[in-house]
Design a protein around this nucleic acid. Structure first.
Lengths: 208, 208
DNA sequence: GTAAGCCGGTGATTGGAGTCACCAGCCCAG
DNA sequence: CTGGGCTGGTGACTCCAATCACCGGCTTAC
């Protein structure tokens, strides 16, 4: 597979001029699933643009985590962007959800590119907006939905991101990504199964 | 009070050139406390920059609200910004917390100004980042803190924004802004009082 | 083969918060 | 001055989720 031209077509919306800059200064890198890319408190010097796969972004707080959103193809990470612009430490944790291919842009260059290339400026505004909206949804779910619904939505979203109808995932992980406990998830899953909304077999979860 | 030069000094960081544009195209307007500026689902054509006072921004969802943050002097509203850029309806509700003075920028002009004036571009990036960080904090509070702590933090923040040590506020309003019920707040306030963290007298709340 | 570890599953219990119903005190309008 | 509106305050109850303790089944390491 010709990666170099590949990502250029995928990121075509950034414009030829910027693509040329990227070709020179950005680094293409692959990560296996479950690689931790950023930890909380870390200072970041590279800004990722996902080409393939997905990165999941967490908030961690006092030993407990909460899945905030996924970064998918053609998307970038506003937290790294912010972290480099204001030289703040990262407030989130980022882990590859699947084997992923990522274009890494040097932070100092991005500072300049944002000013020179409206397409990149546009991308980050759009990303900020999208992430912000997602967070508001997350908050509303947290505040007003029962755990049943949160778990179900979580499964739907994960299935959408991974593009699989069968999910291979442990109760423990679900619990961790939703910031709750394993037994609680087990019970909720039982209920969802009884309600005919999911099926569990051999550690696989099928969404109906 | 000479308002016209007044806001120009306050917004000096935007640069002379942009200030001239603002002078021509922006509108200075005052609102009494508790004026609803934006409702959920509304399409916005004006982007506010607060000069004096404060605007509180809510998420409302199935009849319940949640206070997200305050827009204070020299700050703007990213939700309006987004709403106008992507022509999406507003996902939030905005109400003046106090008597406020606001500079209203026409949405279509802002589109252009953002590209032409890095200072404005910068302002919105900075605002996005700030709001985003605040939301993450809110989420962590929601997930991991007891209501006691949430209420206390809420009171601290409100006292900071209004710059008053005594708050004149009803339990009902606290409940509404935190997305809970009045009786619950009453009980929490009782506990906070017994713990010596606040004092309640004649409907005034004093933070210790 | 056996011990250790992870997996889902379950019962008992606790605690936080939301809900319902009702009270007294206060103020204001008519 | 009286009724209706607001305020805070309370008891009783319910519900959901978290926690603790413990299971049997399965895989893996040694």
């Amino acid at each position: 597979m010709d990666n170099s031209t590949n990502w250029q077509t995928r990121l075509h919306f950034l414009g030829i001029a910027l693509l040329n800059e990227l070709e020179q200064h950005a680094v293409l890198q692959s990560f296996p699933a479950n690689t931790t890319l950023v930890r909380e408190g870390q200072y970041v010097k590279l800004i990722p643009v996902v080409l393939q796969g997905a990165i999941k972004v967490f908030s961690s707080f006092e030993e407990k985590d909460l899945l905030l959103y996924y970064i998918q193809a053609s998307e970038s990470c506003i937290m790294s962007f912010a972290a480099c612009q204001y030289n703040q430490p990262s407030r989130i944790m980022a882990i590859t959800e699947e084997d992923s291919e990522v274009l890494l842009l040097p932070a100092d260059k991005v500072q300049r590119w944002v000013k020179e290339y409206p397409s990149l400026n546009q991308l980050f505004f759009q990303q900020y907006n999208q992430r912000y909206t997602e967070l508001i949804d997350t908050i509303n779910h947290l505040l007003f939905n029962r755990l049943d619904e949160r778990v179900y939505q979580y499964l739907l979203e994960k299935s959408r991101v991974k593009n699989e109808t069968q999910l291979n995932i442990r109760h423990r992980q679900i619990a961790q990504e939703l910031g709750t406990a394993r037994e609680v998830v087990t019970r909720v899953m039982k209920r969802l199964e009884q309600e005919g909304r999911i099926q569990q077999q051999d550690g696989l979860i099928k969404i109906m």
